[in-house]
Design a protein around this nucleic acid. Structure first.
Lengths: 211, 211
DNA sequence: ACCTTTGTTAACAGAATTGTTAAACAATAT
DNA sequence: ATATTGTTTAACAATTCTGTTAACAAAGGT
């Protein structure tokens, strides 16, 4: 075997472990996850898992970092395309956010659970994030203020608007397993339901802000 | 000591354990919860906890049963007062639902996590719940259809409407610890923020359904 | 060919956690 | 008073899980 195929194999194993860990942590959380189960899914002995990632904690942090980055990515998606008129921009932003969460449906629940169970850990991270978000959203707030002055839309607090958008988009996925058995045929066809839900969420928000 | 004061003490201990267990399970989940920690919080030895509730599993189920009942209660609150005109009825329903969750802010996250982590367990429960909800909501759907025919509101699918209401109301609390550090002064005064959020959610839904 | 580095395995150690038990203790009824 | 029933405690058993170690294998560089 050449050097190349070897490092590839090594990377493969690392990736296998990471993939298995992602699935395990996202479905069962840190406490419910078992390193032996992750190793088994990845097709390696559990000693190998420790060889590659030292501890469960460190493996978990790799996943957490990735998921926090994705979560922040998803939130920025709401901002939409600044070159579009405000209403179109928001429509696009809501849709992009929805699609992103649709591809990572377990993401919000995982991130929220993690924050709830160990808030201290993320205080530093949050201080920075809060400042960044503050700055970025300020721009949108100003554009909204101008549009409102022109009478194109209701005066609106961006932060409240964002909470509403996230509520509508995120809840659909966070609560999916809870709602699905209660809703009968409505949710039977997942793709159809999600498409309906996306337009519904856009419609709901637009009606809220259009004058 | 009389027989009475004795049974009272016993009930007190049981209640103490249950209260401690509720807090532990709701904040940390089943896997993260520790029976020793519950016992300590309740001020009893951990052997006593086993004496009263046999196993962690059984103690957990006591809490789950209560929380599922509360969750179902909260959802029925959305139905509102049938004697009111439809718009007023919905306003009241949304507010009642919001207030209920506000008093049990950890409830939805707990119930959803439980369903996600062991769906099999609740299949039976769900079959029944699905049928009940189906029947109850059908009445509201008919009233909405009549109001729509009279031109008082948009034609609306009750189930979609319910998902939107739950999204807006529930997300506020599920994501509270996640959003709070990001939102600066907006969420600094919790009571004020919740009051704002409640009227915002009502306004959002009403605008969606009013013609 | 030899040595070093890296990867792999199996067995095991340590810690934490749930659950049990036997015996002491308290309350009550007869 | 005493038997009975229920409650409490402390010690311990059993299991599960994470993390380590020591021996071994493979590969690469010199």
């Amino acid at each position: 075997m050449t050097k190349n195929s070897n490092t590839t194999e090594r990377q493969n194993k690392e990736q296998e472990i990471l993939a298995a860990a992602e699935h395990e942590f996202l479905t069962k959380g840190y406490d419910g996850a078992r390193t032996t189960s992750i190793a088994q899914t990845a097709g390696v002995t559990h000693a190998m898992l420790h060889y590659y990632f030292r501890t469960k904690e460190q493996l978990f942090e790799r996943i957490v970092d990735e998921k926090f980055a994705q979560m922040s990515h998803s939130m920025f998606a709401i901002l939409g395309d600044p070159s579009l008129p405000i209403i179109e921009r928001l429509k696009g932003g809501i849709a992009a956010h929805f699609d992103f969460i649709a591809e990572n449906p377990q993401l919000p629940r995982f991130v929220i659970n993690e924050i709830v169970s160990r808030p201290e850990r993320y205080e530093v991270l949050y201080k920075r994030a809060g400042a960044i978000i503050d700055g970025v959203y300020k721009g949108l707030q100003e554009e909204i203020d101008r549009a409102a002055k022109r009478g194109e839309m209701e005066p609106t607090d961006v932060r409240m608007l964002f909470i509403s958008i996230m509520s509508l988009n995120v809840f659909t996925f966070v609560a999916y397993p809870f709602m699905e058995p209660l809703m009968g045929e409505l949710m039977a066809d997942r793709d159809r339901f999600l498409a309906q839900r996306k337009t519904e969420n856009i419609e709901t928000i637009i009606r809220r802000i259009k004058r």
